[in-house]
Design a protein around this nucleic acid. Structure first.
Length: 559
DNA sequence: TCGTGTCGCGCC
DNA sequence: AAAGGGCGCGACACGA
């Protein structure tokens, strides 16, 4: 059973129960905003799938009112997938013009000002369309898909992810501002007055200035820094750390130290603490489906998905509680093995340490080479050691390499590629097509062709990575959804934050905050769910998805 | 003074 | 030792 929420122009909400095809069951209920949580809670015992345009909008308000739901359909996230998916390309939905169901959709409008017409891009009006209509359209698209099971699983996982995002945002990540302050003070010195540099940063800066004999140097300015380096006889094309590390000069160590400290200060310093942490919690702003590949993005200064290891010791479980930190080991290579069905690579993928198993199979000589070679295969490396290892990898795992090569060739031709569950890549932009077209024209120069080849290869690297990164993101969604279900079972009737609950997600890593006495049970749930995610996506496939799990008091203790 | 583009770097 | 994919953000640089 489904239950749809739609906003009415007068501010009331229509609650409509629906069957699988989207036909209305019984009489819709009209409720005002205040009584909506009670209405939702009243229907929840029937386990409906809640249908709404935007989970972060509806569910955040419900959570604030103390109401949780089990399942939902996030129409906007689903729409984005269905519109682009190769599996539903023939559907009516895929052929519709852009509307408010397409996030970030813009329409071009002509605005007259006196005699002049201006072409403006403006956002589409939102919520103009009826969610019930959209829901029926989506059900039809799914039913007519080339593989309804796959796309259906993807949409369910995507929507479950949206529920998790809202719940994690509601609960917040336990954060000890006093410990964060200690970390900053030990690295940078005590918090300075506004506009001043912390003392330890100032000291390192002085050492840099002395070493380069540049008393006014501001190393934050790449242009200035480049000049100072060249005066010291150092020739570099950029001021990136990994480039500077190669250089022997007494000024380089303090410069690298300065960059590290300056980064800590500007990205996760006292300002960050003031803005992002309140009442002992950090409230990240997740954006499910925010990345083309299906990965989540984050917005706002929090930078949840870039939380540096330096400050993780400030993430501390409440008294009597633990953090269970679980990380899917070597997820992307395992995904590639499972996707391609390559027997040799799947064999390696059954091992706890896939890279060691690749070495053991004789494909490459060292574990480091195995890692670099696999990364190169998934990212499209052509040069360096990674590029040199490709022929060896191809010999050892022909099917796996063929899969990523085919994805790359498709991208180079300007075609789309699709993940395991049916998320398809975008088409390259108009500019890209023009460049390709120019290279075949009468007047094409060598430079035109070179540019076109380089652009084509670039898009090929994107599509090559898309299938692996996107399928890995799907695995993570299946894992997360299953974990959430398992934790709910454990919680019984207890409220979200009074029982084991998810507090953090970062691509292939989950953190659960739970009472200490159930931490071991939570670990089992995490591990079982990882295995279940593998089965959901690949059936009984001979690839393992092992986790490294740490039960800790603070996040910094997890490796 | 503002908005926009680039660089560099954190995470996966 | 080094260069392939995806992000967000802060600081700087520059032009309006």
């Amino acid at each position: 059973m489904y239950a749809a929420l739609s906003s009415q122009p007068d501010g009331t909400v229509l609650v409509t129960t629906l069957d699988d095809e989207g036909s209305t069951i019984g009489q819709p209920q009209i409720v005002d905003g205040r009584s909506l949580p009670a209405a939702v809670a009243g229907l929840e015992p029937q386990h409906p799938r809640w249908v709404w345009d935007d989970t972060s909008r509806w569910y955040s308000a419900l959570l604030d009112a103390g109401v949780r739901v089990e399942r939902c359909v996030d129409l906007r996230l689903s729409h984005a997938i269905l519109r682009r998916s190769e599996l539903t390309a023939a559907s009516e939905l895929a052929g519709l013009p852009l509307s408010s169901w397409d996030r970030g959709a813009i329409e071009s409008v002509e605005v007259a000002a006196g005699d002049v017409l201006f072409d403006l891009d403006r956002p589409m009006e939102s919520a103009a369309e009826d969610p019930l209509e959209e829901f029926r359209m989506q059900r039809k698209a799914i039913a007519s898909a080339t593989d309804p099971g796959r796309i259906g699983l993807l949409l369910a996982a995507e929507s479950a992810g949206a529920l998790v995002a809202a719940e994690m945002q509601f609960a917040g990540l336990p954060w000890r501002a006093d410990l964060h302050d200690e970390i900053l003070a030990s690295n940078l010195g005590p918090r300075p007055k506004p506009g001043q540099r912390p003392v330890l940063l100032e000291e390192v800066l002085e050492r840099v200035r002395e070493a380069f004999d540049a008393p006014e140097l501001n190393p934050d300015s790449p242009a200035e820094l480049l000049k100072a380096l060249s005066r010291a006889g150092i020739v570099v094309t950029s001021t990136r750390s990994w480039e500077l590390k190669k250089i022997e000069h007494p000024g380089i160590p303090p410069l690298l130290e300065y960059k590290k400290l300056a980064r800590l200060l500007s990205a996760n310093g006292w300002q960050w603490l003031d803005v992002n942490v309140r009442g002992g919690r950090f409230y990240p702003d997740y954006v499910p489906g925010g990345v083309v590949t299906g990965r989540w993005a984050s917005k706002g200064g929090g930078g949840a998905l870039q939380l540096p290891k330096q400050v993780r010791a400030a993430v501390v479980a409440d008294d009597g509680w633990k953090l269970v930190v679980a990380d899917a080991s070597q997820l992307e290579p395992r995904i590639l093995a499972a996707l391609s069905g390559d027997r040799g690579m799947a064999e390696a993928g059954r091992s706890k340490d896939m890279y060691a198993a690749i070495v053991a199979s004789g494909a490459v000589a060292t574990r480091d080479q195995a890692k670099v070679a696999m990364l190169g295969a998934m990212y499209g490396a052509t040069t360096g050691e990674s590029g040199r290892l490709m022929p060896k990898l191809t010999r050892a795992y022909p099917q796996a390499i063929a899969l990523v090569e085919m994805a790359a060739r498709a991208g180079e031709r300007g075609e789309i590629v699709t993940t395991r569950l049916g998320r398809s890549s975008p088409l390259p932009g108009e500019g890209w097509r023009e460049i390709q077209g120019d290279a075949y024209g009468e007047a094409a120069t060598d430079a035109d062709q070179k540019r076109a080849r380089s652009q084509a290869r670039g898009w090929g690297r994107f599509t090559r990575n898309f299938v692996v990164q996107g399928s890995a993101a799907e695995w993570a969604l299946c894992w997360m959804a299953t974990v959430r279900h398992g934790l709910n079972e454990m919680a019984g009737t207890a409220w979200l934050t009074d029982a084991p609950h998810l507090v953090f997600f970062m691509h292939d890593e989950l953190v659960v905050h739970c009472p200490a006495d159930v931490a071991a049970e939570v670990e089992r749930t995490l591990r079982d769910s990882a295995a279940q995610a593998g089965r959901l996506m690949f059936g009984e496939l001979p690839v393992e998805f092992p986790l490294s799990v740490a039960i800790v008091d603070n996040y910094g203790q997890a490796k």
